[in-house]
Each structure stands twice: as structure tokens, then as C-alpha cells.
Amino acid sequence: MDLENVSYAQKQRLAYIDFKLMFTGSVTRNEIIQRFECGTAAASRDLALYKQLAPKNLTYNTTEKQYLLESNFKPLFNHDARKTLVKLANEISDGFDAISDTKFPVEAPSSLNVPDLMIVARISQAIFQNKAVNIIYTSLSSGSEARDIVPHSIVDNGLRWHVRAYCRKSEEFRDFVLTRITKASIKSGLSKEYEHKEHDKEWNTFISLELVPHPRNIEHPTAIALDYGMVDGSMTIKTRAALTGYLLRRWNVDCSNNAELGSSEYQLYLNNKHLISGAGNLTLAPGFQDL
């Protein structure tokens, strides 16, 4: 049997199996039953058919009672990179976009580039399995080199995708741009306790940003207040310290000491700069200088 002779409903379930294997490294019969509210017999048939269509993609682990990703896995479905990243960001796990013919009248900003989906898949698998990844990473400062990282979150910062991870070389939590990773292989053995997300201080610290209409660039501040749903001329956004610099740059928030950025692109001003000096990536924030 091939995919052309499979019903639409079963294709959905097969795509879910494909997606789960690719991005988490495993799938169970119960996950299929719960996701699609089907019976045990139907889920078993789906797994048997997937095994028939892609025999080298999975193997059954009798001890853990789950199907595990094989090292020579090749996706059965064509998972579109941009759509899949959105699904991952919103915890949508059916992976079923390859045969959808529904076109919505909504346009999103174009991306200059998207990460290699197999790189994203290995990073995602490592997160679910609490394992380290050996990567080849090209940085602006040191060029290409191998390093071991323990990833815990994949982030869309509005400009590009990066992974937040503990870096064993620098012995600290850092951001790694996904498009700069050219090779990724999961290492054996579980990661150490101190490498886990719970120990990433900047990630677990939340900061409140008080934003107001720019006091110099905006002639009619009520317009900006309406744009952002401000109350009494201001709004407060709560964000992770590790993401603060990215967000302020994405929103073109003037973070200078005295609203000194005069360009019209800066419609918002950070009104509580003195409270965020310990946040991450503040060098990216427009006009920011330490007090």
C-alpha cells in the first residue's frame, strides 16, 4: 500500500506519527488514541501501516512500550519548514500540512531564511530526551567550531530562530542561532542537573517593561495608545529576562536615557529602564546604555 490509497483520516494519523518521531524521538499507541479519540485496534493498524510504509523509521522498545526513532529516519511526509516552526511554537503536533488544500486570506511577513528542519528536529529530540547535542556552530567572533550544548527551548525572537541552551564550552546558558548550526548529533547519556532549564537564571527571571508613546517622535500619542491598548497612556509587558533585548529591538522601543532616538520608527519609549539593567541581550535594545 502507498499513501495515495490511504484515507484522509488515516493520513492525519500517519502524519502525526511521523511528526512525533521526527521532533520528539518517540511515539506511543496511547498518544495516538488520545490525540484522535480512536480505539486501540485502529491505533495499532496505523502503527503497522506506518511501519510498512517506512520500515527504517522506527523500532519498538518493549521495555518502555513505545516506538523509537531510528538513526536513519527519513520523514514520510513533507513537513514545510515555516509551517512546522509555527506549529512547534504553538504546540500543534499533528504535522499534517502536506496535503491540506485550505488557503486562508492571511499574509505573514516573509522570512529571509529558515533553519534546516532536520537540525531543528534533533534539537527538539534532545530537549524531550534531556540529552546534550554536539553541534558545528559558526559564530561571528570565532568562526566554525564544534561544541556540546544542552538545549531547553527553541525561540522565535521575531527576527530569527534560536535555541536557548547550556554551553559546556563556556559553562553558561547562551543563545545559538539555528541557521548557524550546520550539523547536530545527539550524545548518549542524560544531561547533568545544573545544565537543565531550572538553573537558567535569565530564562526563569521575569521583567516588567513599562512602555509609553515616544515623548518626542509622536505628535498625537493617543494614536499609539490605541494601537497597543494602553491604559492611561502606558502599558506593561512581562517578559523573560533572556528575551528582553530581542523584544525591545523587535518593537523598536527607544531605550536611551532621555528618549534621544529621533527617528520616526521609534514610536515607543521604555519608561522604566532603571529596573531592567540585569536583563539579557540589552546590547540589542535600541539606544540602551548602562546607567
Results as ranks from 00 to 15, higher is better:
L58H: 01
D80W: 01
E64I: 00
T63G: 02
V27R: 03
I33K: 15
K74F: 06
T62I: 08
T62N: 06
K56V: 01
C38K: 12
L21I: 09
A41V: 10
S93I: 09
A89T: 03
D46Y: 09
L49M: 12
S44E: 15
F23P: 09
S93H: 04
Q34H: 08
Y50K: 07
N90M: 06
L21R: 06
E64F: 04
Q52K: 13
I33A: 01
L53N: 10
L21V: 05
K87L: 08
S26A: 15
F36Y: 14
Y67K: 00
F77I: 10
T28G: 05
K20Q: 14
L76P: 07
T40G: 14
N30L: 11
I32F: 05
N61F: 00
L47D: 04
P75G: 14
T62M: 04
C38I: 15
N30Q: 14
R35H: 14
A42M: 11
E91G: 06
S93T: 12
S26P: 00
Y60C: 09
E64H: 12
K51M: 02
T28W: 04
N72C: 08
L85P: 09
N72Y: 04
R35E: 15
K20C: 14
A41G: 08
Y67Q: 01
Q34K: 13
F36S: 09
Y50S: 07
K83Q: 14
T84E: 03
V27L: 10
Y67N: 05
F23I: 08
H79I: 08
I92Q: 12
K83C: 01
F23D: 00
L76G: 13
F23L: 10
G39K: 07
N78D: 11
Y67S: 02
N72T: 11
E31T: 11
T59D: 04
S71W: 02
T24E: 01
A89Y: 05
L49A: 07
K74W: 03
F36R: 09
I32A: 07
L85Y: 07
A81V: 14
T63S: 05
E70Y: 00
G39W: 06
K87H: 12
A42V: 15
T63W: 02
N90H: 12
T62A: 13
T40C: 01
F36I: 13
D46A: 12
L58M: 15
L88V: 01
R82Q: 15
M22W: 08
A43V: 06
P75F: 11
S71H: 05
D46V: 08
P75W: 12
L58T: 10
Y60N: 05
N90I: 01
K87P: 00
N78C: 04
A48M: 11
L76V: 13
I32W: 03
G39H: 07
S93K: 01
R82A: 15
R45L: 13
T28Q: 06
A43P: 00
G39I: 10
T28E: 10
N57H: 06
A43R: 04
V27N: 05
D46K: 08
N30I: 07
S93P: 00
R82W: 05
D46R: 07
F23Q: 06
K20P: 00
Y50R: 07
R29V: 06
N30K: 14
K65A: 08
V86H: 13
G25I: 03
